[in-house]
């Protein structure tokens, strides 16, 4: 049995905003299945009593003072923009929620 279907991959691709052709979806589903069957080994040892470690360091409370420092200039901020108008980033129409 496969762990991941083509529909699953299509859903993930949508979540991740990556357009995929049907052929790519099929290919990716096969590959992911292969990878997942290898990586799901983690479940063999991950028992209830083990605390998860999300970060290698045990540091806490790293803050900075509330002090303003110079920002980029407008032209620096927009230097990489694919399109711009009037000091703003120009992007395709934003659909969906207002």
């Amino acid at each position: 049995m496969t762990a991941i279907s083509r529909e699953d991959v299509a859903h993930l691709a949508k979540l991740a905003r990556v357009e995929m052709t049907p052929v790519e979806l099929d290919h990716m589903a096969t590959e992911l299945d292969h990878i997942l069957s290898a990586v799901k080994r983690v479940q063999e040892v991950a028992t209830q009593d083990i605390q998860p470690t999300s970060h290698p360091l045990a540091m806490t409370n790293i803050f900075r003072d509330d002090v303003v420092k110079p920002s980029l200039t407008n032209s620096e901020a927009l230097s990489g923009a694919p399109a711009k108008i009037d000091g703003r980033f120009k992007v395709p129409q934003i659909l969906g929620e207002e």
């Binding site: 990586v39 799901k40 983690v42 479940q43 040892v45 991950a46 028992t47 083990i50 605390q51 998860p52 470690t53 999300s54 290698p56």
Partner: peptide, 15 residues
């Protein structure tokens, strides 16, 4: 839990 969560637990074991 099954994937990311379990992987983090393995991280604890490795440490």
């Amino acid at each position: 839990d099954a994937y990311y969560g379990s992987a983090q637990k393995v991280r604890t074991l490795v440490k």
